[in-house]
Amino acid sequence: MSHAITRLPDEQIAPLIAHYDAAVRARRRHTLIMFGVIAVCTVLAAWMGEVKPDVFFAHADRLPNYFWSITPVLHWDTLGADLSEWYWNLDHWLKLLLDTILIAYLGTLIGAIGGFCLCFLASANLVKSPWIRLGARRFLEFCRTVPELVFALLFVVAFGLGPLPGVLALAIHTMGALGKLFAEVVENIDMKPVEGATASGASWLTTVRFAVVPQVLSNFASYGLLRFEINVREASIMGFVGAGGIGQDLVEAIRKFYYSDVSAILLLIIAAVMIIDLVTEQVRHRLLGFGGQR
Rank of each mutant, 00 (worst) to 15 (best):
P9F: 10
E11G: 01
Q12W: 12
Q12P: 00
A14P: 02
P15T: 15
H19I: 15
D21K: 13
D21Q: 15
I33K: 02
A39L: 03
V40I: 05
W47D: 15
M48R: 11
M48Q: 15
M48C: 08
G49L: 04
K52M: 10
P53I: 15
P53M: 13
F56S: 12
D61T: 12
L63N: 09
N65H: 10
F67D: 08
S69R: 11
I70R: 05
T71A: 15
T71Q: 10
H75E: 06
W76K: 04
W76D: 02
Y87R: 04
Y87P: 13
N89I: 06
L90Q: 07
H92S: 13
L94Y: 06
L94C: 14
L96I: 04
D99E: 08
I101M: 12
I103T: 13
Y105R: 01
G107I: 00
A112E: 00
A112H: 01
A112M: 03
I113P: 07
G115I: 01
C117W: 12
F120C: 11
N125M: 07
N125C: 13
L126N: 12
K128E: 07
S129Y: 11
S129C: 13
L134S: 01
A136C: 07
L140Q: 00
C143Q: 01
R144G: 00
P147W: 08
E148M: 05
L149G: 14
F151E: 10
A152I: 11
A158P: 14
G162E: 13
P163M: 14
P163T: 14
L168H: 07
L170E: 01
H173G: 00
M175I: 02
E184G: 03
E187A: 04
E187Y: 04
D190P: 09
A199H: 08
A199P: 06
A202V: 02
R209F: 08
R209C: 06
V212S: 07
V212T: 11
V213I: 02
L217E: 08
L217A: 04
S218Y: 08
F220W: 02
Y223M: 01
G224Y: 00
R227C: 03
V232S: 03
A235N: 07
S236C: 08
M238N: 05
F240T: 09
G244R: 09
I246M: 05
Q248W: 08
D249Q: 11
D249L: 07
L250W: 10
Y258T: 07
S260G: 15
L266Q: 11
L268Y: 12
I269P: 14
A272Y: 10
V273R: 01
M274R: 06
T280N: 13
Q282C: 04
Q282D: 05
Q282V: 09
Q282F: 11
R286F: 12
L287E: 06
F290Q: 09
